[in-house]
């Protein structure tokens, strides 16, 4: 990372901002919780009757209990791992496939590139949430399938962004020089193109992670995620929302967790993209 940052010529004199540093800390905390979760929680997240139903927050149950008397704190903490893991897995998959495709297209150019780019445009002009709903309702809703669905929906978007970035690089003379040296496609893509779009790829990765977490959460909230006992944030919000009049906490805790995570990802992305001279996660990407 530091290497990536120091290499960019435009970042001289730019420092990470306060919000960026805060976001990085928050993200680190989320990762730590995701890894150490099982050792941190006082209760089994699925244990019914850890307390009375709808207990308010106390020292024993920091976020209260839900309709089955399960400990909300434990459920939120354990849910962190799944939220991060599914989000990162879906994004990672999409970014790997999309980057490879985008770079290859930019290098290849010509007819193949034009045709594949049009196909990507067609894929992108399908409403993602509705396609995801359909796919999940048809193929089933286990986490692996949800991850795969989101990855398939995001990959063409990543490919388009990376291709656009790489197209400005392939016309540079150092790529021509590599071509004249007789370098192979793989060498040109890896040595000449990838290092110069690494910033774009990174920004794309972190933006998409935010979106993936939101989208997987949306699916789970709509009831197309993991089955009920699972401590998944979206599902918890859904369940808690049904009984929001009885207690506030079963909804608030997972909602706040998701909000914090997504805001942290976005602030972090914003700062990194500013540092490496990108326009930031504003351009329309929905």
């Amino acid at each position: 990372m530091t290497l990536l940052l120091s290499a960019a010529p435009r970042n001289i004199g730019r420092r990470p901002s306060l919000t960026g540093g805060f976001a990085a800390l928050l993200l680190a905390a989320f990762f730590a919780i995701a890894i150490a979760g099982p050792w941190l929680v006082p209760f089994d997240p699925a244990a019914i009757g850890a307390g009375m139903p709808f207990e308010p927050p106390s020292w024993q149950h920091p976020f209260g209990t839900d309709n089955f008397g399960r400990d909300v704190f434990s459920r939120v903490v354990i849910g962190t791992r799944q939220a991060l893991a599914t989000g990162l897995a879906a994004t990672g998959l999409a970014v790997i496939v999309g980057t490879a495709l985008g770079l290859w297209l930019a290098h290849r150019r010509g007819i193949v590139d034009e045709i594949v780019a049009r196909i990507l445009d067609v894929l992108i002009s399908m409403p993602p949430l509705i396609m995801a709903l359909l796919a999940v309702s048809v193929f089933g809703s286990n986490p692996a399938l949800v991850v795969l669905t989101v990855a398939v929906l995001f990959a063409p978007r990543v490919a388009r962004v990376v291709r656009a970035a790489a197209l400005t690089v392939v016309t540079e003379d150092y790529v021509t020089a590599a071509l004249l040296r007789g370098e192979t496609t793989l060498a040109i893509v890896l040595r000449e193109l990838l290092p110069n779009v690494a910033g774009t790829v990174f920004v794309e990765f972190s933006i998409r992670t935010g979106y993936a977490i939101v989208m997987i959460g949306s699916l789970s909230f709509l009831g197309f995620g993991s089955p009920p006992p699972t401590p998944e944030w979206g599902l918890m919000i859904n369940e808690g929302y049904a009984a929001v009049n009885a207690s506030f906490w079963p909804v608030l805790a997972p909602t706040a967790a998701m909000a914090l995570l997504v805001i942290a990802v976005n602030l972090f992305t914003d700062d990194v993209s500013r540092l490496i001279g990108h326009s930031g996660p504003v351009e329309a990407r929905r």
Partner: peptide, 29 residues
């Protein structure tokens, strides 16, 4: 805008409902 952009709609909706419908009771949930 940052908050509006990165929060999922259901989080915003729930936050609004909790305050204006559940707590204050001004609006129907």
């Amino acid at each position: 805008t940052l908050i509006g952009m990165c929060l999922p709609e259901y989080v915003v909706a729930i936050a609004l409902t909790s305050v204006f419908a559940v707590k204050l009771g001004w609006l129907p949930p």
